[in-house]
């Protein structure tokens, strides 16, 4: 379980958010939503301690990751898989090597075992045939999927998705959403999805955390969100024709 307690972060004079607290139960998928620039990506970088908060704590299975020494922190980070917004693939190596990268350094597996695990991870994202492609040859959707394969290859307990569908066409976005659901089920992973794509939220999330006005403005299940009368949340989720239609149909 991940417990976020009274987290506050600012960059210089700019307050990002303050006193953010919520829990993420094992096995659930939570979507962190909010306007662009509200600090969603900053928040998930605090969960695996890529950024340090001004105050507050993040407990991973009861241990505060921000109070750990660097070596323990690095070990704990191996429990996390992260899909970055731009995929963050290493462009000097090909698809296979990108996925094999963490295995080569953090496991004592033989070359054959590495190969089997890489191909298994690529099969989860339906990219077995692209294993020898250079990263420059991959489309945006393929890059996301390779990034996802790399994120799951060490069989993490938690996976964090930073804008997994941004910049993708609706069909590819849908495929990524399906993948998030499939991976959560088949690998029993706790998922944290940062997005402002409400279609994606409705499709993949069990719970939603809404950041607004430099704080956690609303937190609850997707069903509760659909019924919520929270004005800023309603304004955010009904900001497109599609979502207005969804809400009208629901009501």
């Amino acid at each position: 379980m991940i417990e976020i307690k009274n987290l506050t972060k600012s960059f210089g004079d700019l307050l990002v958010w303050e006193d953010v607290s919520f829990n993420i139960q094992d096995g659930e998928t939570i979507a962190i939503i909010g306007k662009s620039g509200c600090g969603k990506s900053v928040l998930i970088k605090h969960i695996n301690a890529l950024l340090v908060p001004d105050s507050g704590s993040v407990l991973i299975d009861g241990e505060d990751i921000h109070k750990m020494d660097y070596v323990s922190k690095r070990k704990l980070r191996q429990k996390f898989g992260v899909l970055f917004q731009g995929s963050a693939l290493f462009d000097s190596i090909n698809t296979f090597e990108n996925v094999a990268f963490p295995l080569r350094y953090f496991s004592n597996q033989s070359e054959e075992e590495i190969r089997n695990n890489v191909m298994e991870a690529l099969s989860h994202v339906n990219l077995e045939d692209a294993y020898n492609k250079e990263t420059s040859e991959l489309s945006g959707g393929m890059r996301k999927r390779v990034g996802l394969a790399r994120a799951i290859v060490l069989k993490p307990n938690y996976i964090m998705y930073d804008e997994p569908t941004s910049g993708l066409d609706p069909q590819t976005s849908q495929e990524i959403n399906e993948l998030i659901i499939d991976l959560a089920k088949s690998l029993d992973i706790t998922s944290i999805v940062v997005t402002h794509d409400m279609h994606s939220v409705l499709k993949v999330a069990d719970k939603v955390a809404f950041l607004d006005q430099e704080k956690l403005s609303w937190h609850g299940t997707v069903e509760e969100m659909k019924k919520s009368e929270h004005k800023a949340l309603i304004d955010f989720i009904t900001a497109s024709e599609y979502q207005i239609k969804q809400r009208v149909e629901y009501n």
Partner: peptide, 14 residues
Amino acid sequence: VSEQIDALESMGFN
């Protein structure tokens, strides 16, 4: 800037 260093750190690399 392409978050590759963040990716390394998040995998547990120094």
